[in-house]
Design a protein around this nucleic acid. Sequence first.
DNA 1: TGATTATGTGTTATCGTTAACTTATCCAAA
DNA 2: TTTGGATAAGTTAACGATAACACATAATCA
Lengths: 351, 351
Amino acid sequence: MIRKKQVTLNDIAARSGVAAMTVSRVVNGNGYVSEETREKVLAAVTEMNYRRNGLARSLKRQKTETVGLVLGDLSNPYSTELANAVRESLSAQGFNLFICISEHSGKEDIAAFEALVDHNVDGIIVATRSNRDGNERLDRIADSDLPIVVVGRDFPHKGVDYVSADNFTGGFEATQHLIDLGHRRIGFIGAAFEDRHSLKRLQGYLKALEKHDIAVDERLITGRSESAADVPGYSTEKIGYEGMKRLLSLPNRPTAAFARNDLTAFGAIAAIKEAGLSIPNDIAIVGFDDTPLASHTTPALTTVRQPMRLQGQIAAEMLLRRIRAVEDVRREDRILDCELIVRGSTVAAKL
Amino acid sequence: MIRKKQVTLNDIAARSGVAAMTVSRVVNGNGYVSEETREKVLAAVTEMNYRRNGLARSLKRQKTETVGLVLGDLSNPYSTELANAVRESLSAQGFNLFICISEHSGKEDIAAFEALVDHNVDGIIVATRSNRDGNERLDRIADSDLPIVVVGRDFPHKGVDYVSADNFTGGFEATQHLIDLGHRRIGFIGAAFEDRHSLKRLQGYLKALEKHDIAVDERLITGRSESAADVPGYSTEKIGYEGMKRLLSLPNRPTAAFARNDLTAFGAIAAIKEAGLSIPNDIAIVGFDDTPLASHTTPALTTVRQPMRLQGQIAAEMLLRRIRAVEDVRREDRILDCELIVRGSTVAAKL
DNA sequence: TGATTATGTGTTATCGTTAACTTATCCAAA
DNA sequence: TTTGGATAAGTTAACGATAACACATAATCA
């Protein structure tokens, strides 16, 4: 199909009898242009339905005024809030936001990074889980001085800022809360093999157990099996559901569990109910995030609230700071406090 | 900050003692290049850490191999599934996907369209709700022959394909199901003023009432108030929650309600439980989408399942067909069947 | 053997825009 | 009158890549 040939500055220039540069000045509203010429040009612009070519413009100006956001786990309300906050902050400053999804693998991370770099975005905000291949590529991109900010985790590169909730302390407090209630067999739901090391919430859980001299039982730590990543539409809820089923099938099942996030907790809750057990009496549950639904489950979910919008705002600010910087920027990192929200899903352990 | 000057084809050419064109051939793997030259060039490429400039490439080639997806309501699992399916289909064909969010207004729709058009995407998939300003702009873009596909609704333009679930029939069957169970006072939750006309699910609801000679009670149709759009973090659940609260406060409250989607239904369920009423005995609830959580609520949610991934796949195929078309493409539309999934949240009305 | 095709590489022009520079006019201050 | 800043517009040369063409030389075929 023969697409309509796009109208260029030169077409407008020819039509209105001025130089292309003058048209450019009118369109961009900079430089000196007489009122008379401006109107003439504007008329031609409207008549010919001209729209400037962003590619050419960006190529020449060496900037796109566009930022990329790489999200893992789109379905998590955390991502939604984050993306919205980022977008709002950026658009207030005249920047566009393009989102790329990378749900499962380092390969997808890399594909997303490359797509963004290829389009010469002015900066990238990364909110995927840490993984080797992805980190390696990100490192190379950061080396090239492209502004990068990482959200929800850290990233060891002098040119990369990060903002995150205090997942470690959050995980610690969630577990501490269960311990305080008298629980001793406490499960952790949602730790895939590959993120045992990077998962701060898990580390907080382990730390709390350690502090109270509770031995770690590996069978109580459960998560997605390797293959789940490949199943399209495999949801976080399902991970929680299956994880809890596994915990329930243990000879000596836990009396409480901490789920890596609310969605996982919802799945776990479903599994518990399905088994005919009661929450919180048979099993207490703590989630993480405080998503909108958390207060609406029965019983309402005890969870760790993290500031989602704030992380997005800060990430956007950090990135803009780098984009606009004239001289070298010192690395910045922000760890934001979480807050334990106690609701009905946790109660003192039966003795 | 002085960013590293980017390495260009010419730098590589100079370094390896060949013409820029030869480097281009090596990098793109087309045209004839001797093995010897190829290696020499590749060595230089690695040494100098060259990456081609996508902007320049796209400008010259007049295509970006990138597609934009405009999503409303990111938090809905429907969007997640759709986006993933689209991305998978596209990336299998070597296309990148950039997602833009437009949660509330025509203004945001327009901003998203412009951002994408400015970046010369090869096509756009639109999955936002219909609204006047957005439609108008989309119409103009379609006039310029940019391939466009609309998902989840229709769009009257000869150059725009669409794929959608059969929302009308879905809404009809959901309501019919409630009527079959003996319900006569049936609420509808989630119809904002501005989409009364475009909301096919509502129209299906109205049609079912009409068929059974049940008078429409406007007070039973409830949704987000105008202002809610401006509240950041305002969730769909909340709309359902508040909508149901309003229904419950009616002098003669309904015995059943059909929610525009599952999230709205979850909110409604929360409101019912909070009021100390029972589902489905006091109030029966039907949702729409069959999101992962729907089968996990208590009681499990009766809902209308729509094919989410399939819509994404079809949308991607439709768009690629247009992008690759050599001659004019005839408009295509697909309406996909939905399926009523009866679970525990609906039961015969008490007499 | 001469003609033809395949292979390898370079040159030029261009994609559409804008930064930087140049030219020209006008008016006010010195 | 001269100088010079503000205003108004045009010219040129990129930004970085590649399509199109040209020109070799080598391999193949009639």
